[in-house]
Amino acid sequence: MKPTIATQRVEPPPVSDEMLVERTAQGDVRAFEELIERYQDPALRVAFRFVGDPQEAEDLVQETFLRVYRNAHRYNYSARFRSWFFQILINLCRDWLKKKKPFLFGDPPLVARSEPDPSEAIDRERRAMVIRRAIQSLPPNQTLALILCHYEEMSYREASAVLETSEKAIESLLVRARRTLRTRLAELR
């Protein structure tokens, strides 16, 4: 009897972000597109939580990708792409904050209007708005530390690389942010 060879399909290992940025630097548009697909959602989450406006957030994300494309040849391969990417985004968010006039919370509704119970949906929207305002009214570095560590689940080490500070400083920013938020959000409980 002929021995059978296991024909289990082996998935090729995923191409690393660092490899993709290297290919992007060589002009590979498909590699750039793959980077966009991987990072567009987390980038939008971070930007939106910081600026509070979906359109402004998307503009910042778009500018981040354009900078990645233009500066791909300058990328330092000893650093993680993810950290480099979020550093660019965070710097753009900070610049946005400096140029921005005091923000008027328009808060367009993000919850679908076709909810079975409209009052419940409205209540949820209201709560979400209060939380977003509370986060955005923190000092910028506290907001950013919270967004990166809490929402994006970055380690203190990675967040410290993105925010160009120490791990101890990240911990301190988080402690202060949570303390303030607990007070400000007490009414929602």
Binding site: Q40, D41, R45, R49, A57, L110, V111, I131, I135, H150
Partner: peptide, 9 residues
């Protein structure tokens, strides 16, 4: 903090 909806790209 988890209960905030997010926009889509």
């Amino acid at each position: 903090l988890e209960s905030t909806p997010l926009p889509r790209i």
